[in-house]
Amino acid sequence: MSTYESVFSILGLEAWCESGTKESSGPVSMADLLAQNAGTDVPPPSIWELPFPSMDTLHEACGAFPQSRALTKGIENGFLSIKDGLSFVLDPLTQPLSWFLEAALWLFETTPWWLMIPVLLVVVLLVSRSVKLVVFVAASLLMFAFIDYYSFAAQTLAVIFVCAALCVVLGVPIGIAMSRSDRLQAGVIPILDMLQTLPAFVYLIPLIFLFSVTEPKLYGIAIILYAIVPVVRLTDLGIRLVDRDVIEAADAFGMTDHQKLWKVQVPLALPNIMAGVNQTIMMSLSMVVIASLVSAPGLGVLVLRGIRNLELGVGLVSGLGIVVLAVILDRTTKLALARISAGQDR
């Protein structure tokens, strides 16, 4: 009936296969059905049609052999069986994230626009020290307000501020630890690679199982996992790239490891760390849009509405709004970065 039956009979596993056949009531291939109807066996396939001995092919030959869907099913069941334990641990651990997000959203939503916009402008001025940029930001924010997109944009900013800040708070220490231990670095880099390449949607699936969709931490975690990578990487890299001569001088003058880290390594790595922060903010922004699928508020919701209801105008305007936000965040952090780097020119 199947190409690989003989393999199992040679291995003497016929009995084992037989035991499986009765239980298996999985779908039957079209060829088999046709053969059954015709009352004849399918003619033995030529060598050109030899199928790869995949799980499904082998299952055909031997009923006890698991099908490939058993693999994905198994993973799912495995995850579901540890789910309760996992959420028992993770739920309280991640609860502060929900509080932060709720507080930030509340702050951005309840602060009246005539207070919020000037405050944001002052922040931009302090960070970037560029009047030109402040003018651009003022124009953009007023435009958002004028076209009634202000509250959405404010929500998006609130989520980004919280998530990017947490990325820095968590990511910089991880990066510092990595720079000091080659073994830790070797262990963490594959995880970072995976976080960076895993399609953004895939983060959301297990998170939906673990937390309720109404909780802000659900999208908070998804954003942080996705956006933390650059700040970790560039902190590690920045500290490793600090001039060896300067490190030697620090040693020669008897600095402790702690002094060396805070007086030499971190300040000299700051341009790289800031480049990481810039990337982290940009990645938070891109994830906050995708995370609107799991109830993240903000402009992403409008993009999603545009797709769902084919509201072309809403989709385009909110999409362009995201671009404007990206430009604001990018320019502000880049100018801060340029200022820090200029101080260290050699």
Partner: peptide
């Protein structure tokens, strides 16, 4: 008790 002067100066740029 010991101080050191380096070929490449090794000053802290910041």
């Amino acid at each position: 008790q010991m101080s050191m002067v380096f070929q490449k100066f090794a000053l802290l740029p910041h």
